[in-house]
């Protein structure tokens, strides 16, 4: 009887270790899977899978002054690319123009923003309301 009990306990311990591993693995995983998939598909060719950019040709995500002002500016940069940047600074810049991404829905833009903030920024999360308001005001 005692032996049986000990065995059950050992089994239970073993199970707990497995469960622990699963939780730990879950913790490593960033929570914005769709944002990451969209980043990989739409942005990573230039900005890099690791967000490091490429030579002086394409800027890294970390260098972006829009990264920390989560929501407002970043949504417009993602959707309108250089068109938005040109309007902000009142003329074309000398960078390789960033293309627009008008095919992205507000929810997709939100997921990209939250992924970028989690991976490269302050980890502050943005809401869908903020993104929708921002996107309405991009071209004013």
């Amino acid at each position: 009887m005692v032996r049986f009990h000990a065995m059950r306990l050992r089994k239970f311990n073993f199970l707990m270790v497995i469960v622990g591993f699963i939780f730990a693995a879950e913790g490593c995983h960033q929570p914005f899977a769709q944002g990451q998939a969209l980043y990989d598909a739409n942005c990573s060719r230039c900005h890099g899978m690791d967000g490091q950019g490429f030579e002086n040709l394409y800027p890294g995500i970390l260098e972006s002054p829009y990264l920390m002002t989560a929501g407002s500016g970043l949504a417009c940069v993602i959707v309108h690319g250089s068109d938005y940047l040109d309007e902000k600074r009142g003329g074309p810049g000398d960078e390789i123009p960033m293309p627009e991404n008008k095919h992205l829905t507000p929810v997709e833009v939100l997921n990209i923003i939250n992924y970028l903030s989690w991976e490269f920024g302050s980890r502050e999360t943005t809401t869908i309301d903020q993104v929708m308001r921002a996107m309405e005001g991009c071209k004013e």
Partner: peptide, 16 residues
Amino acid sequence: FTSCPSICPIMTREMK
């Protein structure tokens, strides 16, 4: 072409 958003960035990386 320089403003190519699709395959060129990858090609330029590989060529470099």
